[in-house]
Design a protein around this nucleic acid. Structure first.
Lengths: 252, 252
DNA sequence: GGCCATCAACTTGTCAGACAACATGGCCGC
DNA sequence: GCGGCCATGTTGTCTGACAAGTTGATGGCC
């Protein structure tokens, strides 16, 4: 018998993955779900999985290794594999999932007006230069915006974007839409970030200049945003109105 | 040649893991570090890794699968494996790592006084009952505490603990130490949680009753805490003084 | 000389069978 | 009845092989 190969239809078959290993990973999860196994339960042995899913033991084992690394399974040599409880921690929209503010809007059920408060080309301060690994002399675009829902301000946004990424004059760019879309158009799609969160009041300057005295305590997220290839794009600070936003995550 | 087995000293050798696969996983990371490979770079082929690390191809491949699942490597059939940028996102103390407040204290460089403001046995409200999956009639222990550093209040803590977990009268328990240690002593060590974070001012009742008017905006973390086996233990709300705490995480 | 098809080499994906090491429970002897 | 021994089950590792995608070189054709 040839070793797989005979194009195996299964193309377009619901979910699955490209490689056999990925299909087995999903197959194992399905099997667990079908049998109603819970945290701590023993899952079928490699031999049983092989009988159910086909394939060879190394392939099955690679699929199992994926699930182990994902924290869904734990192994005990000579005893078997067991469902961990960590795998059952379900978090709705984890803060660790990268998404633009515009994408997040839908999740919270808000539709935003996006008001541009100002934009300018500036010299970065030390912190921003370090975060974005800017060369001496490189400048940034400082973009100040406000997101409103039904005329009430909900998010105050400050972005420091590497000037060199935008090949056009900054006044020709439409800053009132999704910033991610703008950056993607210039070939620098944001894909991930390192972030720091804290609770504070809005900066004095923002309160006084834009009439935000009623904003109340804010959930501030400072992010250094990168492309898929790890190139730093911008440093963003977003103050979310505390009374309107909450963020989920799992800890383990 | 026997297939491994000859006890291979290597015990206590720096890091490493128990199994060969774990050692190879670390070995690959070390190799990458030594050679100064960066995001997007091609890592050595399976054959080269085998030559460097020893072992067999299936074992090497299982180690690689771990790194792929961890998001550190990506594969392209026929081309090779490449370092992803996501793997280079380093976060100091991620908020997604479960730890007790006492443990966190050290990280922030604070040493705390732990003041018990009150404890009592109560009937849970609907939200807590749902989060802890309490049976009708089950009660909770409500524990209210304050962490101070140099006499200044930094964290206001409210915990709702399943009464049935503590087999002693609640007034015989020392609540002034680590809550995790107490629960561990009764065989219910906290290990993970689902959490929600937001920014808000302290509850009115806490401000007025405990003189916390100067606390300012707080970073509130609501957590449902579980044991390793997934059993819900308690529902904790911790208000961190916004001016003193920031929390890190990666988004991808 | 330039272009394209073919092919060899490299690399990852999968398969088969085997032995090693750890865990468990039953069997047997005492 | 009890404890040690051993068969069995399960995961860990090794060897060798073929399948399939990618890349670059080769060589023929125009």
């Amino acid at each position: 018998m040839p070793q797989r190969g005979e194009d195996e239809d299964m193309a377009g078959a619901g979910g699955g993955g490209q490689t056999t290993v990925m299909r087995f990973r999903d197959g194992i999860l399905n099997l667990v779900a079908e049998r109603g196994l819970k945290a701590g339960d023993k899952i079928p042995t490699e031999a049983e999985l092989k009988a159910h899913l086909g394939g060879s033991r190394p392939t099955i084992r690679e699929a199992l290794k994926l699930l182990e690394q994902a924290g869904i399974l734990s192994v005990e040599h000579g005893r078997g594999r067991f469902l961990t409880a960590a795998g059952t921690l379900h978090v709705a929209r984890s803060i660790t999932h990268f998404e633009s503010i515009t994408e997040m809007a839908g999740h919270f059920g808000y539709s935003y007006e996006n008001r541009v408060l100002g934009f300018s080309e500036e010299t970065p301060d030390k912190a921003v230069r370090a975060a974005l690994k800017l060369a001496p002399g490189e400048t940034i675009i400082r973009l100040e915006r406000l997101r409103l829902h039904e005329r009430k301000p909900l998010i105050y946004c400050l972005a420091m974007i590497r000037r060199s990424l935008i090949s056009d004059p900054i006044y020709e760019v439409d800053w009132s839409g999704s910033l991610n879309a703008v950056l993607e158009r210039y070939g620098h799609a944001p894909r991930m970030s390192t972030a720091e969160a804290r609770a504070e009041m809005l900066p004095e300057s923002a309160i006084s200049r834009h009439g935000l005295a009623d904003f109340g305590p804010a959930f501030l997220i400072d992010e250094t945003v990168f492309t898929r290839s790890g190139e730093p794009i911008m440093f963003a600070s977003d103050w979310y109105k505390g009374s309107h936003f909450a963020f989920n995550f799992a800890r383990k």
